[in-house]
Design a protein around this nucleic acid. Structure first.
Lengths: 333, 333
DNA sequence: TACTTTTATGTAAGCGTTTCCTCTCTCTTA
DNA sequence: TAAGAGAGAGGAAACGCTTACATAAAAGTA
């Protein structure tokens, strides 16, 4: 019993050579309409599907791209990864998912694995990758394959970036709070990533630009989680800093902060206004619902794929795409 | 300039045949220790990595498995998919991610694509697949590859299942509420899936078993979302049904319900107790925090992969694994 | 009409592995 | 000492495709 139909079977049935079958398969010219039709009939009759593996072997690459993420459990990354995969499938590619967990060794192992699999491109989600990639990408074994970096930039010939304008996101927050009459605004940084750093400095700049008070007691640090939010509010209250609004680096941290502030007797938004970041599902479940910044992560995913596509088609393209976040105003401000 | 090192290069440097290199690569016997060592040195020296594609061609399959999900944007699925991918990588496989969006055509297209890619197994997350798969899997083109179904069962030779005991999950909810003194318990079904159906009937059974009132006004329907939760609470209040507790099919729906009840002047949990389902990040952000059921989705992911692995190794194995959910008691009850 | 060009098709090599088969050499054993 | 067994290694085919090259027929050109 024959396991799988191959191109020879089709050639035999259609009474042509395998070269011809291959030509119709790949929509090459130089095939007469009648022959083309004959071949297509044979394909249909046999229900033939070309083996992506065999094709990959001769072409030295497959229509596959690797998606490297630290952890798609995080809602933003999940949204991005999902959008990417959809778009990839739509244009005939498929996606190998890699959750590196942020470890450098894993990262390298994954990259290695991806090139062995013959991926034609790699997309990285998240700014954590900057560290690893910076050095790794210089290695010759990766230099031939294009990288699209979502959320970070690296000066290497084979990298392209899609970034979010965090500066603008923070600016929207600060200006919104100012409009609402707040002047004593705090910022909570909850991640040691490049993106976290950029948001923090954007906060500084905007506060300075608008002549709002800014010093070493207006920025607090914690870790991204509900508990991290609770902890930082404790710090804030203990510090005795004067404040009427807090911007958090992420919704989940904001949710924890909100929780703690309410427990401490503050009314939100009357006593203190709160803004989260990332517009995650949780932000809507808070009471009051969180004002937050939507990072358009799905759009970033789509754009990343489209960028990669134009690179793969060897078309002229820009190396950097910037998307603009939006403020989602809800009850907490 | 040579693009990539191949097995011939290694053979040449080690002064052996490619057959021998292949044997050490695959840890076959019949290689003398000295030869093995020579080859390993050559591999290290050249930094050689065998091509997964070429290997795939001769083996007719790659160390790749497809993960079919409707939408990994949903926190549970993301958690499962993430756990699966981690475990797969750990045992040397990689994962092709597929977000079908629930459409039957997509589903078939994805399956087709996966077999063309030579995956050695497919894991499906979610009970939606039952419909499509039931018929599709009978097709001979899929019969040779093993399927692991997370969340559903299908009577086909090449399928294996990992399911969650929803019955038990619901039982925990009802008994917990009964302990708290509730008798008038409502159930909100928010998904037309097999799993949704099972939870609903489990609710019926448990209410009956415990002699609690159950009729056509104790079960309500809506769609899974914050808004769906708001809408169903409106329905419930309009129906005039007597109730002191509500179990929702999902946290996000519960969050919407909670929101609506508070707006309507109910105190939670004093006036009415609420239980969600799935232990999603959002459940912790609600005020009061939601009591919910943890589906152990990461464990399900791990088990799915392990099940697949034993199948691939042709070892004897059970066709069905059941995991037991846990009640997470928080403030809303 | 005789030529060049274009179009349609076939032949066969090659992509990088694995593995079956063969061969040689050494070690047993009668 | 000769035959047989077993271990270690190599030769070469096979996996299913693409494509450079070759060839033949058709079409265009003068």
């Amino acid at each position: 019993m024959k396991m799988k139909i191959n191109i020879y079977d089709v050639a035999r049935i259609a009474n042509v050579s395998t070269a011809t079958v291959s030509r119709v398969l790949n929509n090459k010219s130089n095939v007469s309409p009648e022959t083309r039709h004959k071949v297509q009939e044979a394909i249909k009759k046999l229900n033939y599907r070309p083996s992506a593996i065999a094709r990959g072997l001769v072409l030295k690459h497959t229509k596959t791209v690797g998606i490297l993420a630290t952890d798609i459990t995080s809602p933003n990354y999940a949204r991005t990864a999902c959008a990417m995969e959809r778009e990839l499938f739509h244009i005939g590619y498929n996606a190998i998912l890699c959750n590196t967990g942020g470890s450098i060794e894993n990262n390298k192992a994954y990259l290695q694995m991806l090139v062995n699999q013959g991926v034609c491109g790699i997309i990285c989600i998240g700014s954590v990758f900057k560290n690893t990639l910076q050095e790794t990408l210089m290695l010759s074994e990766f230099s031939h394959i294009p990288f699209v970096l979502s959320h970070c930039q690296i000066p290497a010939d084979n990298t392209y970036s899609v970034v979010i304008n965090e500066k603008h996101g923070i600016r929207l927050c600060v200006e919104h709070l100012l409009e609402k009459g707040h002047r004593d605004i705090l910022y909570v940084k909850d991640a040691d990533t490049y993106s976290g750093e950029r948001k923090k400095s954007a906060f500084r700049e905007n506060m300075a630009r608008l002549d709002l008070p800014i010093n070493d007691k207006t920025i607090f640090n914690t870790y991204r989680s509900f508990e991290g939010g609770i902890a930082v509010v404790k710090d804030i209250l203990a510090s005795g800093t004067k404040f009427s609004a807090i911007i958090f680096g992420d919704d989940i941290t904001a949710a924890g902060g909100l929780f703690a502030l309410k427990k401490a007797g503050y009314k939100i938004p009357e006593d203190v206004a709160i803004i989260g970041y990332n517009n995650s599902p949780a932000s809507i479940c808070c009471d009051p619902q969180l004002t937050t910044v939507d990072n358009k992560t799905d759009i970033m995913g789509n754009l990343s794929v489209k960028l990669l596509q134009t690179v793969l088609e060897k078309k002229e393209t820009t190396r950097l795409l910037t998307v603009t976040p939006e403020l989602v105003i809800r009850e907490s401000t």
